[in-house]
């Protein structure tokens, strides 16, 4: 399905073109920065009413990734909700969709800076978790290894080949996931704040129709 595999520690990971990360050995699907109910927060705080369909859109994509991979475990890597109040604004149908996706699966919400506390939904709430030798947390820690994180919304454009796309960034020690939510912007993987998190030999995997591996230029 046009995915792209790479190795982190001893784990063989698969970057999906949707922006999700799949660990087949653990039956684990990881997505980051869903920013569900962002439109509600924007309406509440800014008085601007964005099309309130980002939650449906994001959950739809998650549902098809779950079906395609048959994952038994799900990790939402933080910033799953745009803020704690936003989580309360989900419609009944949206909550039902989440419950349906959770049914029969081990579901972990990792805390993010937008949603530090637990939300009133099923699944367990953790600051970080270690599974299959990998540490899952929202924001990368300097010096850590075998780490999977999100937070930065990386994106990248190949020179001479069109606009920037959301992307995975990885080296031998860590991978940072792209934002999975529909209403999310991004930071260039080449920007110092992000590039400095990686060693000289680092890669990006662009999302889109196919997941495409490319080298990330040095600092």
């Amino acid at each position: 399905m046009n995915a792209c595999s790479f190795t982190l520690g001893t784990a063989r990971l698969c970057a999906l073109p949707s922006g999700a990360l799949f660990d087949a050995a653990e039956g684990l699907l990881c997505v980051s920065d869903l920013h569900l109910a962002k439109s509600d927060r924007v309406a509440r705080r800014q008085g601007i009413m964005l099309p309130p369909y980002e939650t449906v859109e994001t959950l739809d994509r998650l549902a098809s990734d779950l079906t395609a991979t048959g994952a038994r475990r799900v990790i939402c890597l933080g910033d799953s909700f745009d803020d704690p109040a936003a989580a309360d604004s989900l419609t009944g149908a949206e909550r039902d969709t989440i419950l349906r996706l959770q049914a029969g699966r081990d579901w972990i919400w990792i805390a993010g800076n937008h949603d530090p506390g637990p939300v009133d939904l099923g699944g367990s709430h953790r600051a970080e978790v270690i599974i299959g030798g990998l540490t899952y947390r929202h924001e990368t820690l300097a010096g850590s290894t075998n780490e999977v994180s999100g937070h930065y919304h990386p994106k990248f454009a190949l020179p001479g080949a069109g606009r920037a796309r959301p992307c995975f960034v990885f080296d031998a020690a860590r991978v940072i996931l792209p934002a999975y939510g529909a209403y999310t912007g991004g930071l260039s993987a080449a920007a110092p704040a992000l590039r400095h998190r990686f060693g000289p030999k680092a890669f990006v995997i662009l999302t889109g129709r196919c997941a495409i591996l490319a080298p990330l230029p040095g600092v």
Partner: peptide, 8 residues
């Protein structure tokens, strides 16, 4: 797409 893949 072909060009992006080839460039990469």
């Amino acid at each position: 797409e072909r060009l992006v893949a080839e460039t990469a």
